[in-house]
């Protein structure tokens, strides 16, 4: 091919390129302005973690740190402390005083969910963590803990002695007939 033909062939490709740009300029974009816009996720998608509460407002998390032990990315940090009847966070004697997840380290494998003896931690498809700073990506307990149900006081609660002595009851309840 001579150099003249080559030049013409290359010049003809320029309008093809412009056409592609023009076509895409008016088509619907495939990207989303996350987190302002969200895409519906499958119900089993493992998004960011939430710490759940019981219906009476007490935290399900008992600070056992089994999630931290199960975490392959070492993303979870738990410090426990002791409940009192005057200041009760969770049933039983122990609660999580500090609960932090480093979302930059988390690989969203869901092992923490599996390890949790009280189903306190749940990875929900609602959102995926975002942030502009590294410090902001360490989610603290107040960020992870869901709000208490309507009309129920938040923790710590003052409770009656003897009512919440135990942290764990079998879940689901054991069927003795089996």
């Amino acid at each position: 091919m001579s150099s003249f033909e080559e030049t013409v062939s290359r010049l003809l490709k320029i309008p093809v390129g412009y056409a592609t740009v023009l076509r895409n300029l008016f088509s619907k974009p495939v990207t989303l302005q996350y987190p302002e816009q969200k895409k519906p996720m499958s119900a089993r998608f493992r998004g960011r973690h939430h710490l759940k509460r019981y219906d009476d407002g007490l935290e399900k998390c008992i600070g056992c740190a089994l999630c931290a032990a199960a975490c392959p990315a070492d993303a979870i940090y738990v410090e426990a402390d002791q409940n009192t009847n005057a200041e009760r966070y969770s049933p039983g004697e122990r609660y999580a005083k500090t609960y932090e997840i480093n979302m930059l380290r988390c690989i969203f494998c869901g092992y923490c969910e599996d390890a949790c003896p009280t189903n306190a931690i749940v990875l929900e498809p609602i959102e995926f963590p975002t942030g502009y700073t590294r410090e902001g990506m360490i989610y603290t307990k107040s960020m992870l803990l869901e709000a208490p149900p309507n009309g129920v006081p938040t923790t710590p609660q003052a409770t009656q002695p003897g009512k919440f002595d135990r942290s764990i009851v079998p879940y689901p309840p054991v069927d003795a007939s089996v």
């Binding site: 008992i62 056992c64 089994l66 426990a80 039983g92 942290s167």
Partner: peptide, 11 residues
Amino acid sequence: HPLDCPICDKG
């Protein structure tokens, strides 16, 4: 024996 190994210091 209770099933509270998760909150037991001996666990």
